[in-house]
């Protein structure tokens, strides 16, 4: 599903990330582990096509990302990658329903209202569809953010520290929801986390080396 080869990212002269090789198959669920500052978020951004690595080759869903630029890369991302950012960040000016709608239109895809309703029901926030994000609890907002990330049936679902600041039960529930939604969308799941509670909940782990972070 994706393959990274000799990927390296530098900020100026400082090497921030090194991934010699990582290959994931469709539908697999991975933990991207590493200490804080090890480059987990950077690697997620590279997989999403938001950051171009300083070196190396990144192929996602059969697409060499180096061959995509500008608007083409944005469109590709909207259609193939779902992102659950660490701070969730729903668009506060519009309703929960419209947050999912935006995900479709920004990707240039047709809005399937029935799918949006079904997804909101699946993540148990159907009754909050017309609420503004500011009216939601943290757990409700997280469920909406996950629904938004999978609404376009992405091939790759990326989540950045989804359990940060959650208690054990909520963290387990969030992980389970991510895994379920990824499975139902047929997406490969990559969860970046330094939370020890997450490791036993995901079948595969890619450990970012300390060497890379310190180099």
């Amino acid at each position: 599903m994706f393959e990274l080869t000799d990927v390296e990212h530098r900020y100026g002269t400082v090497r921030a990330l090194a991934v010699p090789s990582w290959r994931a198959q469709a539908g697999e669920q991975w933990l991207l582990a590493g200490a804080s500052g090890s480059g987990k978020s950077t690697l997620l951004h590279i997989l999403a096509g938001l950051t171009t690595p300083s070196a190396g080759r990144v192929v996602v869903a059969g697409q060499d990302l180096a061959a995509l630029a500008g608007g083409a890369r944005d469109r590709w991302r909207g259609r193939h990658v779902g992102v659950v950012p660490q701070k969730l960040h729903l668009i506060g000016a519009v309703s929960v329903f419209d947050n999912l709608r935006l995900a479709c239109t920004m990707a240039g895809l047709r809005v399937e209202e029935a799918r949006i309703r079904a997804l909101l029901a699946a993540v148990q926030v159907a009754d909050l569809a017309q609420r503004r994000p500011g009216e939601l609890s943290q757990g409700q907002a997280q469920r909406v953010a996950i629904a938004r990330a999978v609404v376009n049936r992405p091939a790759l679902l990326l989540a950045d520290e989804p359990t940060a600041s959650l208690d054990d039960a909520s963290a387990a529930a969030a992980l389970e929801l991510l895994r379920t939604q990824a499975r139902e969308a047929g997406a490969t799941l990559v969860v970046a986390s330094h939370d020890a509670r997450v490791r036993p909940l995901l079948p595969r782990t890619y450990q970012l080396s300390e060497v890379a972070a310190a180099a």
Partner: peptide, 16 residues
């Protein structure tokens, strides 16, 4: 700023 970044992550172009 963060809203706009999310829009880009969702597939919006710079122009959008």
């Amino acid at each position: 700023r963060y809203d706009l970044a999310i829009l880009r992550a969702l597939g919006a172009s710079r122009g959008q």
